[in-house]
Design a protein around this nucleic acid. Sequence first.
RNA 1: GGAGAGCUGGCCGAGUGGUCGAAGGCGCAGCACUGGAAAUGCUGUAUAGGGGCAACUCUAUCGAGGGUUCGAAUCCCUCGCUCUCCGCCA
Length: 425
Amino acid sequence: MLDQRLVRDNPEIIASQLGRRGKAVDLTKLQLIAQQQRNLEEQRSGLQAEGNRIGKEVGLQIKSGTDPKSEDIANLRKQGNAIKQKVSVLEDEEKLLSSQLKDQLLTFPNLPSDDCPDGTSENDNVEVRRWGAPREEEGLEEHWQIAERLKLIDTERSVRIAQSRFVTLMGQGARLERGLINFMLDLHTKKGYREVLPPVLVNTASLTGSGQLPKFAEESFRCADDDLWLTPTAEVPVTSLHRDEIIPADQLPLRYAAYSPCFRREAGSYGRDTRGLIRLHQFNKVELYWFAHPDHSEEAHQQITADAEAVLQALELPYRVLDLCTADLGFSARRTYDLEVWLPGAGAYREISSCSVCGDFQARRSAIRTKEGKSTKLVHTLNGSGLAVGRTMAALLETGQQPDGRVRLPSALVPYVGCELLQPE
RNA sequence: GGAGAGCUGGCCGAGUGGUCGAAGGCGCAGCACUGGAAAUGCUGUAUAGGGGCAACUCUAUCGAGGGUUCGAAUCCCUCGCUCUCCGCCA
């Protein structure tokens, strides 16, 4: 969420920054609401001060012996009542305006960072670097072909169990998925990340706090009888881990590595990536998350990205890093590096991790602050996939495929999977 | 699902209508004492919003929302959550 004061005092900053994201907004009305709301607050608190004075006066007089039924007291009561009425009118107006303001504000995306490249579509994303030597051969299989041939996944029966876009991992496939989760968590915790296994059902406040609500309700699965949703990413519960808290500055940064299954409705993606492990309603992900001091979030962003890259490097998977342009930024992000892994079978780079710095955007929604001396300020939050497990498996299958149909796993994974070659069981 | 208890500051805990943002304790910070430390003593220590260059000041907040009252942490109503016991259950 954006700062209300910015709306009130410098709406032109918001307009120009959101303009960079391709969002044209007219803030004159909202600014007016914000200013009126402040005026009402001033009037109201002045009246309340007067009312408090009268209340005390009555108490004092009665205590010092004045007859409670005396003229003086009756007069004060009358004044008190008059003020009460005025206050309640002002209060109603003020509440209406604040809720209008807040409702609007919750629908605005974050302002892009100054360093974020300008652009109008994903074509304007800037490639920052590449790592590894991509396999570029003719006749390589795609991961879903390999997975079905080796019976690592059962797609058809998954439809019976649930519906399309769900997958059941079987045998070595299940083992590989489990091994990858463990491998990733081990890698991150060795670097000092605290491991987290959060609830995957989250309440409305949590989804609002990290930015998924109110705008993206149709992207999440919702429980019919409770205020609970299936989390679309561990970013949601981990943000709320410290919701409404003040974190002492000497504890920052807090770094978490959270494994969770993730659930997304993928509304509006009919027909895309219908086969295999790329786009599912349920997938596993290890998420990196930082609560950082506001002065150090830029460095933190470089570090969290490097920590996500470390997984790809350890798995010997070639990738490239994109600096997302303003048009491609997610709702809560100020700046994002996407990691795209090379899929030799598909012959394309595919997103496998998104590393974002959100500034104080989520912290304001979630009331997560830090304290130095007397002043409290909002922390900065960062998140990055480290990594999306299903897509990692897809990349491993395509990258490790052998002419004989088997799949060679990177050596780092052998202790986790128990073999270096996947072959028909 | 049934029955009961509770929800107060970072924590514990007092407070049943009047100057209470809230006693006391713990914790934390500063100062004093000390060669240094412990112990001790003193002082300070919530959040949000408004005004002010600042010192400071006003308003709100005792789970949430309504109500009674000149005045509510305290009384009334609704809701939420937590805990305990019983039932069920991995």
